[in-house]
Deep mutational scan, measured.
Amino acid sequence: TTIEWNGTKITVDNPQKAKELAKKIAKKLGLTVKVHGNTITIE
């Protein structure tokens, strides 16, 4: 699972952990999480 935001890509083996990490990042930055299959985008 890949997390993408602002040109940065982070690959996380565990999809559940990836989703939790994305939510934490999005919350800190005041952004939203969008899931597209194996890609999680923070916008």
Rank of each mutant, 00 (worst) to 15 (best):
P15D: 04
Q16A: 11
T1F: 14
V33D: 01
I3N: 09
K27R: 11
T2Y: 05
D13C: 15
I3Q: 06
L31M: 13
K24G: 05
V12T: 04
I42N: 00
I10W: 05
A22I: 06
N6E: 14
N6G: 15
E43I: 13
N6K: 04
I25W: 04
E20R: 12
A26S: 08
T2P: 04
W5R: 10
K28F: 11
I40C: 01
K9D: 04
N38A: 07
T11M: 12
I42F: 12
K27V: 08
K24N: 07
H36A: 12
A22C: 02
T8I: 15
I3M: 03
D13R: 14
I3T: 06
G7E: 12
T2Q: 07
P15H: 14
I42M: 07
L21S: 01
K24I: 13
H36G: 04
P15Q: 07
K9Y: 12
N14S: 13
I10A: 01
K9Q: 13
E20N: 10
K28L: 14
V12H: 02
N38R: 08
T2M: 07
L31F: 07
G7F: 05
L29Q: 06
H36Q: 12
H36R: 11
V33F: 03
K17V: 12
G37F: 03
E4A: 03
K24S: 09
K17I: 13
P15E: 08
W5M: 13
H36M: 12
N6R: 04
K23G: 09
E20P: 01
N38Y: 02
T41C: 08
D13F: 11
I40H: 00
G30S: 02
K17W: 12
K19R: 13
A18W: 04
I10E: 01
E43F: 12
T8C: 15
P15S: 05
G37P: 02
V33M: 07
A26R: 14
H36P: 00
G7M: 03
I40Q: 00
K27T: 09
K34H: 13
T1M: 14
K28C: 14
K19Q: 11
D13H: 12
A26V: 04
K27S: 10
L31K: 05
D13W: 12
I3L: 04
K19Y: 15
Q16K: 14
V33I: 13
G37N: 07
K17S: 07
T41N: 04
K27D: 14
A18C: 06
G30K: 03
T2F: 05
K34A: 08
T41V: 13
T41W: 13
P15W: 10
T2C: 14
